[in-house]
Each structure stands twice: as C-alpha cells, then as structure tokens.
C-alpha cells in the first residue's frame, strides 16, 4: 500500500492560505506528476502494455476539485483518469498493480488504465467511452437525492466530451431534477487532435450551462486555488439542494493524447508556452512565496512523494499476475 496525505479543504479561504490543506494539495500534485512520469517511463521501456492517457499538465484540476470533496462524495472519471483517482485518495500500489496487469490491481487486471474504480474512495470508475460517465454521475446524484444524503457527485470529462449527446442529456436531467452533481470539464484545448476552435462555436464551454439553466463558470485550470474555490461554491450549492453547476477548467496536456500521438496538430511553441504555466511548479512557488512552506520543506515533500511512487512500483511488481482461471465466474455477481 502506498498513499499520500488525503486532500482536505482549507479552514477558510484559499487552499494556499492553509498549511495543512496546502501541503496535502502539493503532495497530490506531485503524486500525480510522478505517477504519470513513472508509468510513461515504464511504458517506454516496454514494462507496461496497452495504452494510457496521461494528465501531466492537468494536475491542478483533480487536486483543486477533490480538495472540496469528502471521502463519501462520489466521482466519475475518464480515460485520462489517473489524476482523479489519485486525488480522490486511491492506493497508488493498487493503481500501479492494475497497470502492470497484476491480480492485486484495482480491477484484477481486467480493466487497466481506462477502468480503474475504487469503491472505498467513491470513485465510480474511469471510462473508455468519451462522456460515458456523465449520465452515470447524474444517476449517482439522483440516488443521493432519493436516499436523502448530502453527498455530492463530481463528473470529470474533457472538452471533447461536451459534443456528445450523453453530456447534454445528463446536464438536462441534472437540471430538471436539481441533482447534487458538479460537472467538471477539463478543457485542454483538444479532443485527441481536434481543437475546440473547430469542434464548437461557443467561446467557452461554460456557456453551455445556460442551455440547462445552471451556473457555468470558467476558471484557470492550472491554479489549484481557483479550481478549489469554484468547486467549493458548486459543492455548497449542490449540498444545499440547489442543483448542478458546470465548471470549465482551462488547462493543457503536456504529453500526447495517448501513446500513438505524434503531435502533428499543435506547435512546439504552443506546448512550450503552456509548460511555462506548469501547475505543479506554480503552486510550489506560490507556497514558498507566501511563506506557507520553506524551500527545504517543499523538497522534503517532493522526496517523500517520490519514495511513495517507488514503493508503489516495487510492491506492485512483486504481486502475482492476474489470473485467467477466475474469468468466467467474474462476469456476473453471484445471486444470493
């Protein structure tokens, strides 16, 4: 088992104002970054198979959002879902084991990168189908309403997903039923190779909220504080029974879409420009500037997180491979 400190909201104000909240957020950003770099490297060396979609450059979205959630709140995630899973509190060893096709992985090797779920932390699953999780989030939110809990559901998805019918159907349902759900769009400017400039006429994805009479906001998705504040407002609304919100987080992925990407659709200048807005370095610098952390403390956190990722890899590699013997008996849950 390898974990980081669970995210927690600041006592008041911004994440970067509150030492405990800020330190946990920094751990989360670093864990996502190092996890992704580690699997990228293992993939390149042929130690992992399949494909995967990395969140490098987008760490602040999952981190800022999940800082506003409780463990009993739910999320639905996407093909680019490692960040959401980590920020919601998953065991890094079980994630790594899944990618390494081990029996101890979250899906026992049946799902891989695109299907990690973690019932314990309320992660209802990544999804290989673009926009597939959005109606599911609405349904999980409907269940909270029927059960009269005050839990909320966050649905993460990309810019490309907002052109799918599932997005529109889910937002409409959430709107007419006032569901406690927050729709979080990670607008990284591209759905695979196709830019938002070509795939939609609206300037901002948040404008689409107007069609469903819900608040729509656009925030800097590379800024943990901005993402947290928008999410906090939306969560408060949702818990109070005031219905859904659409939050657009503007961000950028540094790496290719998946393992087949040759970056033919964007320029090196554009990528370099966005690297100057790196959410991880930016947050760390902010904390040091604000005096929340010393440089030494930040280095210590970085070292600890690196060690956790190394532990995750070592533990996962030692686990048994996933077992074909149980395949047929796993399709259905046994009837009592």
């Amino acid at each position: 088992m390898a974990t980081i400190t669970p995210l927690l909201p600041p006592a008041a104000g911004k994440v970067s104002d509150d030492k405990a909240s800020a330190m946990a957020a920094l751990e989360s950003l670093l864990a996502i970054r190092f996890f992704e770099e580690a699997v990228d490297g293992m993939f390149a060396r042929g130690l992992m198979h399949g494909t995967m979609h990395l969140s490098i450059g987008q760490e602040a979205v999952a981190t800022g959002v999940c800082a506003a959630l409780r463990q009993t709140d739910f999320i639905t995630s996407t093909h680019r879902g490692h960040s959401h899973c980590i920020a919601k509190g998953a065991d890094l060893t079980r994630m790594m084991a899944e990618l390494l096709a081990k029996q101890t992985g979250y899906c026992r090797g049946r799902g891989g990168s695109m299907h990690i779920a973690d019932a314990k932390t309320g992660n209802l699953g990544a999804n290989g189908i673009v926009a597939g999780g959005i109606p599911i989030a609405a349904g999980a939110a409907l269940a909270q309403k029927l059960k009269k809990t005050d839990n909320v559901v966050v649905s993460f998805f990309g810019d490309g997903a907002t052109n799918e019918g599932a997005f529109h159907e889910a937002l409409n349902l959430a709107s007419v039923w006032d569901l406690p759900v927050i729709f979080v769009c990670e607008n990284n400017k591209y759905g695979m190779s196709f830019s938002t400039a070509k795939s939609m006429k609206v300037e901002r994805i948040s404008e689409r909220a107007a069609a469903y009479a819900m608040p729509g906001v656009t925030v800097d998705g590379n800024d943990v504080d901005a993402v947290y504040e928008a999410t906090k407002q939306a969560v408060d609304r949702a818990r109070a029974g005031q219905g859904p919100t659409l939050i657009e987080c503007v961000t950028y992925r540094h790496k290719g879409h998946s393992k087949s990407d040759k970056n033919l659709y964007r320029t090196k200048e554009e990528i370099d420009f966005w690297k100057t807005k790196d959410p991880v370095g930016k947050f760390e610098t902010l904390l040091i500037e604000k005096g929340i952390l010393t440089k030494e403390q930040a280095e210590q956190i970085t070292e600890n997180v690196r060690n956790e990722i190394r532990n995750a890899i070592t533990e996962a590699q030692a686990a048994p491979d996933s077992d074909p013997a149980e395949l047929l008996s796993s399709v259905f849950r046994a009837v009592n």
């Binding site: 209802l124 109606p135 599911i136 989030a137 349904g139 159907e169 409409n172 349902l173």
Partner: peptide, 20 residues
C-alpha cells in the same frame, strides 16, 4: 423522465452503482 434514453439508462446505471 425527459425523452432522453441514453440519459435515463445512464442515470439508472449510476443509481444502481451506489445502492439503488
């Protein structure tokens, strides 16, 4: 429900996932 088959089946999946 609204006339929204993908939405309502998806909502059923989500509700079922969390115990309904």
């Amino acid at each position: 429900t609204p006339i929204s088959e993908m939405g309502i089946v998806g909502a059923a999946v989500g509700a079922a996932l969390v115990g309904m």
